[in-house]
């Protein structure tokens, strides 16, 4: 696989790209695929999704750091919404706020001096903050109806469950990646 191939084939403009850019592009592409696939899953409630794209963001955060994770997350929301056709719709605003708050929390985790977290803890915080951001955007911008607030505990519970699931997946993914890297050395 040659990572420079797509950009040369699709665009006549030659852009100087770094190894980082390519990494971000590939990981974002993966996240976008998951994002779009998830959008196809019927959801019982708007805003409730397993959040498997979270797996990519958290794995990238752990492997390559916060900056890369932030880029991947932002690209996922922007490009993902273009693909689904939700760009600049309320759904997009919710996704963007959720992603932004979740990335902000990842930033706080990076700065946190206390005991380190495994992907389980990181995914949990990321998932909860994503839902919290998304919900506050929905409540403050679109439906400031007090009835909305009664949904919050349920939504946060679902976010915790999905956070745990994505945490397990992220842990296994990273462990097997590292195992393979270790074997190949």
């Amino acid at each position: 696989m040659n990572p420079t191939e797509p950009s040369e084939a699709s665009s006549p403009i030659i852009v100087m790209t770094t190894r980082d850019d390519h990494r971000i592009a590939w990981l974002a592409a993966l996240a976008i695929v998951i994002h779009v696939a998830e959008a196809a899953i019927p959801s019982p409630m708007p805003g409730v999704k397993p959040g498997l794209a979270n797996v990519i963001t958290v794995a990238v955060f752990i492997e390559f750091g916060w900056r890369t994770a932030a880029w991947v997350s932002l690209l996922r929301v922007l490009v993902g919404s273009l693909v689904i056709g939700s760009f600049l719709t309320p759904g997009f605003a919710l996704s963007l706020t959720g992603a932004a708050v979740s990335v902000a929390v990842l930033g706080l985790i990076r700065l946190w001096p206390g005991p380190s977290l495994s992907p389980l803890g990181v995914c949990m915080l990321s998932s909860l903050s994503h839902m919290a951001g998304q919900f506050s955007a929905a409540y403050l911008l679109f439906i400031p109806h007090p009835g909305m607030l009664t949904l919050l505990p349920v939504l946060m519970t679902l976010a915790a469950v999905f956070g745990l699931v994505s945490g397990v997946i992220t842990s296994l993914l990273l462990a097997s990646l590292h195992g393979r890297v270790a074997n190949s050395e």
């Binding site: 977290l117 495994s118 389980l120 803890g121 397990v168 842990s171 462990a175």
Partner: peptide, 21 residues
Amino acid sequence: AIPYRSIAGALRPTPGDIAVA
């Protein structure tokens, strides 16, 4: 900063995880 030695070990929560939980 985060070691991954085995798949089983990967799912062992750290003290930080427990605090988060």
